[in-house]
Simulated assay, not measured.
Amino acid sequence: MFKHMHGHGGRGCGPRGGWGGWAAHAEARFGGFQEDGRGGGGRRRMFDGSELRLVLLKMIADEPRHGYELIKAVEELTGGAYAPSPGMVYPALTMLAEMELIAEQPSETTRKRFGVTDAGTAHLLENAELVAAMMARLTAAGEHRARSDRAPIRRAMRNLRTVLQNRLEDGDLSDEAAHEVAALIDAVVQKIERLK
């Protein structure tokens, strides 16, 4: 089945044409990916075509979905840091269907909803370690986004610093007000320390 996937137009199944080198390059390839999945400007894709097919297959195995649902599921998993483009997802679904790893299911809408086949389940089991690593890459993208997206906190810190400097420079704070300000700051500090 693995050779079958490669034989349907994939350019190898890892970053250098084989699965073997994927783990070693995963972290290096993570930085600077395009959110819509398009390469360019020196930035790398989150996944190549064969990797994305495996991710989509895993998500379909978890729950039958159509293309738009898959795009949104990936975007949600990464906290908005990455969403594959329709131009990547729909051809991948077509190829997975041609490979008989997924099959169209009855749907009440005009959108094609796919479920995993027995062959698709077997393929996921054969590549379980790689699937787990790629899903971890998506989760890591979300965690990275969450860590780096601290603009509201930085804005609040600037506001606090500005208002404190202004009040101290004006010199119009009474001793009682100064103690009250200090108590407010101490209370906020304690609350922040308890946050998880």
Rank of each mutant, 00 (worst) to 15 (best):
R44L: 11
R44K: 14
R45N: 06
M46Q: 02
M46E: 11
F47H: 11
F47Y: 13
F47P: 08
D48M: 08
D48A: 03
G49W: 06
S50C: 10
E51S: 10
E51I: 09
L52P: 08
R53H: 01
R53C: 09
R53M: 14
L54I: 07
V55F: 07
L56H: 06
L56M: 07
L56C: 09
L56V: 02
L57I: 07
L57E: 08
L57D: 09
L57C: 05
K58T: 14
M59P: 00
M59Q: 05
I60H: 04
I60D: 01
I60W: 04
I60T: 13
A61T: 15
D62N: 12
E63P: 04
E63V: 08
P64T: 06
P64C: 07
R65F: 09
H66T: 03
G67T: 10
G67A: 13
E69N: 05
L70T: 06
L70Q: 00
I71R: 10
K72C: 12
K72S: 14
K72D: 12
A73K: 12
A73G: 01
V74R: 03
V74L: 07
V74P: 01
E75W: 05
E75S: 13
E76M: 08
L77D: 00
L77T: 15
L77H: 04
L77E: 07
T78Y: 07
T78K: 09
T78A: 08
G79E: 03
G79L: 10
G80S: 03
G80V: 09
A81H: 02
A81P: 06
A81I: 09
Y82L: 00
Y82F: 15
A83Y: 03
A83V: 04
P84H: 11
P84Q: 09
P84L: 07
S85C: 08
S85L: 05
S85H: 15
S85M: 02
G87Y: 10
G87S: 14
G87H: 13
M88S: 15
M88C: 03
M88R: 14
V89F: 00
V89E: 02
Y90C: 03
A92R: 01
L93Q: 09
L93Y: 03
T94H: 09
M95H: 11
M95Q: 15
L96T: 01
L96A: 04
L96Q: 01
L96Y: 00
A97F: 00
A97H: 02
E98V: 12
M99G: 07
M99A: 14
M99V: 07
E100Q: 12
E100W: 11
E100R: 15
I102E: 00
I102S: 05
E104D: 05
Q105E: 15
S107P: 01
S107C: 11
S107N: 11
S107V: 10
S107Y: 08
E108I: 02
E108L: 11
T109C: 04
T109N: 06
T109F: 09
T109L: 12
T110V: 08
R111T: 06
